[in-house]
Design a protein around this nucleic acid. Structure first.
Lengths: 215, 215
DNA sequence: ATAAAACTTCGGGTTTACCCCGAAAAATAA
DNA sequence: TTATTTTTCGGGGTAAACCCGAAGTTTTAT
């Protein structure tokens, strides 16, 4: 018997999925959650084998929920479900402990197969998702072979200044924020322009975003 | 007996909805479509009272499908279903003949009520949707500023200028490239700053990248 | 058809970013 | 310890970005 918690804010969707699972003898829907925090609350007091987790939950993102589940309930498997076959979504939630990822346009049979596979300890990805991951890996290698080797390392201060530039602060505002002189900030920006081979702040931010240097 | 056609590309969702409707004696699911054109094909050869139409269909948008249904099969009622409570979606599809609009986070009972109401010739909107419409009607002016803050539509010239800004070109270089005055480019940038609610070009590029507005 | 809104096009004037120069104390690496 | 990088700051200047306003055109709505 596999105890399942469905975490999705779309009631109609949850209703439908539950009526699919109800016909299976080895599957039992032990609860439903409509937001992130209540998932964690539910897990504290119920025995759950697998969480069907919507990636796009209100209040708390599915990624954060997944992270929390893995930290506090390592035995609970997570099967991520999403509307979107987005590379960023897929790779991010997989890096936070999800064992499978399927799309909402997945058919009944594949859904059941995915649930049983993940509950059994293995991973499951639908065909489309696999393709997306492959593309992501290819691009990653291409990007790392291309830029990571040539990417200069930035000092602590430079990173601080860069982040503030990306947040649209003026030089004076950055100076005030870091308690340093306007001229010092300009010096850091100048170093950044040189290191990142950019012509202006726009280039700095573009390069920073392309290399996930912010956040 | 109400004959229903479900038009949604999310198989799992359709499966679920069908199993909900199957339990009702007066409702009969006479078909399912996974894209816009097949809806129209199906209607030619089957008697359908109501179409449960996903607004976001692949290939042909739900709005266009709705328009075609009303033109060719005026007796067929349309109940629009969507993930998003977006004012633009709601008002647009209602202006093209849909008799009701509900969200995918609607519960089982409300779904059944909506189907029977629309099939009976009346209109039905879920509570959230009604609020959205009211807000839209109340602030007709602020509606543009509101949706503009979320996802503003940029003019052809503005997009051109934005792309060149993101490529680190100076205003003069952009002017030369587009064969317009430096002052005109600055005017476009100013419009962009206002529309995207940014303080400077760095913000423009950050927002553009976050929304995949470039390339 | 006519009014309203948006788009494209500019100019004048102010603020900010960027550049080149130089330099010294502090932290880090060799 | 010595050498290198980092962090700090200034003076002075140019080019670019940004703000305020405005007119003609096009598009949209009534």
């Amino acid at each position: 018997m596999i105890n399942i918690l469905i975490a999705d804010d779309h009631t109609m969707f949850v209703d439908g999925m539950e009526s699919i699972l109800k016909t299976e003898a080895d599957l039992f829907v032990s609860g439903r959650s409509y937001d992130g925090p209540s998932v964690l609350v539910f897990l504290k007091s119920h025995k759950v084998d697998l969480v069907l987790l919507d990636v796009n939950l209100p209040g708390m993102s599915g990624i954060d929920v997944c992270k929390e589940i893995n930290a506090n309930f390592p035995d609970v498997k997570v099967l991520a479900i999403s509307m979107f076959n987005e590379e960023s979504f897929v790779s991010e939630i997989l890096n936070h402990g999800a064992k499978g990822y399927i799309l909402k346009n997945t058919g009944r049979e594949e859904l059941l197969k995915a649930i049983r596979t993940v509950a059994g300890g293995e991973s499951y990805f639908s065909k489309d998702v696999t393709e997306t991951i492959m593309k992501g890996l290819m691009n990653q290698r291409k990007a790392s072979a291309k830029s990571a080797a040539f990417f200069p390392k930035l000092s602590r201060r430079e990173k601080e200044v860069l982040k503030l530039i990306a947040q649209e602060f003026t030089t004076q505002e950055i100076a005030d924020n870091l308690y340093i002189s306007l001229k010092t900030v300009e010096s850091h920006r100048s170093s950044l322009l040189s290191k990142l081979n950019a012509r202006n702040s726009v280039g700095l931010v573009r390069i920073a975003m392309e290399n996930h240097l912010l956040e």
